[in-house]
């Protein structure tokens, strides 16, 4: 698929793109020696759908004032945003293997100062939904019609500030705000059920005044139609609880609690992680080795 937005949706092409991006995410994290792979792989279909089918953006003009915004509040998922932005043409693919290298513009956690296309810095969990509220409010005050998307983690939802932002967004009727919760049901120390049960999650968001959608976060058609429905909600913000699989598409980490952050000590381990993707792709960059 070309870097320009696809005009027609062809499922096989999108499946292929998702597999390729998962392979590249795995490779750049292995190249960095460690990284947050699980929560990056769970978001691949969501980010592709947003950037290739939903969001109005100009990669050649990253700060275009009328663009749709994305706040990746679970900032540790940086690698999945980086491969998506590179695929869109925000910056050269040659940047990708610089992930976490000295002097990089692609740090582990997303950074608006460093990376073209990153709309908001995030990494200290719980802040991004508040930031997205500020962006959405500014859009309204500036009488712009852009949409603001915000992706939060399920573990991140333990942070009280998420719920402060939830109250604010509904009180101020921020209907230009669509949040997506990456509900892979795993956090660092265990499953969300074990560590801090979020259920009944949909009811919580409804009680906070949000329109709530509860969907499969890997299904192209459902993602596309649900995000469009969420965007169309009037008078209140919308939350999409996207049920995902942590580490999806990489057999060594898929659906495993330990997939939050992997260590890749050597080339052998690196190869094993690449093999676990189930397919090999030519990497769109050279490493300076």
């Amino acid at each position: 698929m070309s870097a320009s937005a696809a005009t027609a949706f062809v499922k096989e092409d999108y499946d292929e793109l998702a597999r390729k991006l998962r392979f590249i995410i795995t490779d750049i994290i292995c190249g960095a020696g460690s990284g947050h792979i699980g929560g990056a792989l769970s978001l691949v279909e969501i980010l592709i759908t947003l950037y290739f089918r939903i969001m109005s953006v100009r990669p050649e003009e990253p700060r275009w004032s009328d663009r749709d915004r994305l706040v990746l509040s679970k900032g540790h998922a940086g690698p999945v945003l980086y491969v998506t932005l590179a695929e869109k043409g925000y910056f050269p693919r040659e940047w990708l293997p610089t992930l976490n290298q000295d002097g990089t513009r692609l740090p582990s956690h997303v950074d608006q100062v460093q990376t073209p296309g990153v709309d908001m810095t995030a990494g200290s969990l719980g802040q991004g939904l508040s930031c997205a509220c500020g962006i959405a409010l500014a859009s309204r005050l500036n009488k712009r019609n852009n949409r603001v998307f915000c992706i939060i983690g399920d573990g991140e939802s333990d942070e009280g500030q998420v719920w402060e932002a939830a109250m604010f967004a509904s009180h101020y009727k921020l209907d230009n705000l669509v949040a997506i919760c990456d509900y892979n049901r795993m956090q660092i120390d265990g499953t969300t059920d074990q560590i801090m049960d979020l259920e009944p999650l949909a009811d919580k968001w409804k009680a906070f005044g949000w329109e709530v959608f509860d969907i499969d976060g890997h299904d192209w058609d459902i993602l596309f139609s649900t995000i469009n429905k969420a965007v169309a909600v009037k008078g209140k913000p919308a939350m999409i609880i996207a049920r995902t699989v942590k580490g999806k598409g990489n057999a060594l980490v898929e659906a495993k609690v330990g997939s939050h952050n992997i260590k890749v000590p050597d080339k052998k381990s690196w190869d094993e992680y690449l093999d676990a993707c189930g397919c090999r792709y030519d990497l769109p960059y050279c490493r300076g080795e």
Binding site: S130, L137, L141, F168
Partner: peptide, 26 residues
Amino acid sequence: PDNFIDIGVAEANMISIAAGLANEGK
């Protein structure tokens, strides 16, 4: 009134909302 925003008793929320507003030129 349009330039006055009361966030309630939620200072952390206020600061991060302000960051989003500032990001948009406010």
